[in-house]
Design a protein around this nucleic acid. Structure first.
Lengths: 243, 243
DNA sequence: GCAAAAGTGTTACCTGTACACCCATGC
DNA sequence: GCATGGGTGTACAGGTAACACTTTTGC
């Protein structure tokens, strides 16, 4: 291949038009259940269907594009953990043209209701088990995000991104219960969290007037400096997942 | 936003030209060491520098684009495990124009020498510790691929993708040693591999005339049907990684 | 015989799990 | 007192790590 052919091949306009978008799977916990942030599409295709918030990549890098979309379409921004999930580029995933989507995964503590803006007609928190069917291939993207979140709870302190700056071990346990969809033994969970170095550190304080019906005041903790949990908090193994 | 504005925004030609490429981190084991497949660039920018094989996304989906690149540029194809790694889209990562790269990770057993083809002037297997500096941001992509590979050896039967259809436990151990960069205790490794359900299954046969200097004939195994390893084979924890 | 590598036995230790239990508090 | 939930003790099961040891082959 000579120089001329090389540069021709390098021009994307020589190929089928191709767009790059970011779509964001934003998870939080509300009412003890895991919720995902969705928007309702106002335009075809899939008008009226729910979809993940997203938009086109412009001049900024991919991470910033995801952060911008989250802010523009929903008004959410502060204190969200954001990471890249995967890319989806099947031809035909958007009926209009070839679109490659870089999906992102975001976690945040329960905040105010989302504010619709940008392209989004309305924005809402939906239960993850009752979210679909979504527009495009967003069901698949959501499923990938959920699996990633469930897995990362095991070996990273990600759960602390779902709670406030100060939290009780019980609040942390309810995060695990909501994301994994199963209850955890309170006593063992408590001991295990405290035994992982750098996961949480005590503030010395306790909850003030507890909103609970009874019981002692729980001690308050903040996130520690560990980036990975060792030893990990493993989900109870399910037989069908092993083989 | 009305329909007209919407469609305008939807046209990628209204924005900065944007290309999508796939770049592939292909790993194998040769001479007991972990190697990565590289090509030597014939054209600027970075002419003469090594780079990951890759190319533009055309009509096929991303997975197929990665498979095609691997075949075109290197002549390798059969029996490679291929999975998406991550996407890289920083503005300026390619000095010519905006390029979003979807990186893939491939593993295969040691095969014939790669065949240069397509854009690649030459293709070669390089030691992973002596691969860089690579063109573009490929050092970063390679680092991401290595970390993914090291991590996946722990909880998936990925190591079996580095060996032939039938293999000995020792061969499998040498895969772990090469990828993790540390020796493992032969006896304990042996017992552990056999204790994980579905990791390997015996063929009943043994090695014929062993090429080794002495010792008994090793039994042969093939990959089992487990998709995840339970319990996992954890790397020895390093203190600096914990916090 | 000797060296090398496969494979096994044994033991000490460590972690996760289950379950019982105590304690502090609100009502 | 009694219910509720935070927090701890303890015993058992299972996995890990270290190390010695036996077995089988090539030279």
């Amino acid at each position: 291949m000579n120089e001329r052919e090389f540069l021709e091949n390098y021009d994307p306009r020589a190929f089928e038009p191709l767009a790059v978008t970011v779509d964001v799977v934003t998870l939080t916990i509300r009412e003890g259940r895991l919720k995902v942030l969705l928007v309702e599409r106002g335009e075809p295709p899939f008008a009226g269907r729910r979809a993940l918030p997203g938009g086109f990549v412009r001049d900024d890098d991919l991470d910033n594009a995801a952060r911008r979309e989250l802010a523009e379409e929903t008004g959410l921004l502060p204190r969200v953990h954001l990471e890249q999930l995967a890319s989806f580029g099947d031809p035909g995933r958007d009926p209009r043209m070839r679109v490659v989507s870089v999906a992102y995964l975001a976690f945040g503590p329960s905040l105010a209701d989302p504010v619709a803006g940008g392209d989004a007609a309305t924005a809402l928190w939906a239960d993850v088990d009752a979210a679909g069917p979504l527009a495009f291939d967003h069901d698949r993207i959501l499923a990938a995000g959920l699996e990633r979140a469930r897995s990362k709870l095991e070996y990273t302190p990600l759960a602390t991104a779902f709670v406030g700056d100060e939290f009780t071990i019980s609040e942390l346990r309810s995060v695990y219960a909501a994301v994994w969809g199963e209850d955890l033994h309170a006593g063992n969970f408590h001991r295990k969290v405290l035994s992982v170095p750098g996961f949480v550190e005590s503030t010395g304080a306790t909850t003030e007037r507890s909103s609970q019906r009874g019981g002692p005041r729980a001690r308050l903790y903040r996130a520690g400096d560990a980036r990975i949990l060792h030893p990990a908090l493993l989900r109870p193994a399910r037989e069908e997942e092993v083989r």
